[in-house]
Design a protein around this nucleic acid. Structure first.
Lengths: 163, 163
DNA sequence: CTAATCTCTCAAGTTAACTTCAGCACAAGA
DNA sequence: TCTTGTGCTGAAGTTAACTTGAGAGATTAG
């Protein structure tokens, strides 16, 4: 079929630069997201990445989700629930939205709860840590953030002893 | 050598191990907090750290604050507002509590706002990113977390164009 | 007095989410 | 065609908040 001249494959897809411009993300970040399995651009015969329009939405979703406190891993998992064979529909995105909303609701509730205990505990001068609600490790929200904090709340064993 | 006998200085203060037990923190974490200027134990003549009872409260405050999403730097700054010449009073702690509460209120409000926009935007399938409120960089909460994210929202320049 | 614990310091490792850089290949425009 | 401008890869750096490990001294239980 191809008399294979130069055979200029029509410029299928957007370059990483174009995507970067439209999303506001740095190309390096976009490549990183690929490593993390968030986007799966195809390559030109010379190895350059080419993205689809739908990828802009995926990446934008990442930015929004991150600002809401979700990790890349969580976001990837959510995106993996989108159909891979067809372009995600409105319903598909709504399903994700609901999952995230549930998580958000829980976090907001948790923060509100801790905030309400703040005055009562820290504010009181914490003269009796032993019965301070904020010290309950189950209530101390597992901070969303980085790094080893492994032992956080692992052995607050003798908190009830004295102050 | 020493004409002075053993001269047992009375065991002033708690050892790092004792503090670790009472707070549930690892000794390494406590030493790290010292580097960060959160606690200032004095040393025995042989170089071991000795803490005061009040340090337990400082460290507990750190744990609580972290679970509320505050960084070590923010926590240190708050603690620095405590009087250094006398043991902090109830009122001293309450002042800090209020500052943190304000911050918490703002963050909760922000999260609630974004959450409410979630369904409307992601849920809708985001057919028109151009007028999506979640894309407003000013609204995208500056995520509390680690690492370079410097450019996040730095140049979402052409977001209003298409896509 | 000894063995078992504890502590100390300093360097290096860890996670997350990226960035920066070096060296090289391809693409676009005057 | 020659010159910029992009893009690619892989390795290493960055921040935060700590942990882990090595080598050596200090404390304590028996």
């Amino acid at each position: 079929m191809k008399t294979k001249q130069k055979l200029r494959l029509r410029p299928t897809g957007l370059t990483i630069g174009a995507i970067a411009e439209r999303t506001g993300l740095a190309p390096s970040a976009i490549r990183y997201y690929e490593e993390e399995g968030i986007v799966h651009p195809h390559r030109t015969d010379t190895g350059q990445r080419r993205y689809e329009r739908a990828d802009i939405r995926r990446l934008s979703f990442v930015m929004i989700s991150q600002s809401l406190g979700f990790s890349i891993a969580e976001i990837r998992d959510a995106l993996n629930s989108l159909p891979s064979n067809r372009t995600p529909s409105k319903a598909d995105w709504q399903a994700i939205s609901e999952r995230f909303r549930k998580d958000l609701d829980a976090r907001i509730a948790q923060m509100t709860k801790l905030r309400d205990q703040l005055d009562g505990c820290i504010g009181c001068g914490c003269l009796s840590l032993s019965n301070c609600k904020l010290y309950n490790p189950d209530d101390r929200a597992k901070t969303r953030g980085t790094g080893p904090r492994y032992l956080m709340g692992d052995s607050p064993s003798d908190l009830g002893k004295n102050a």
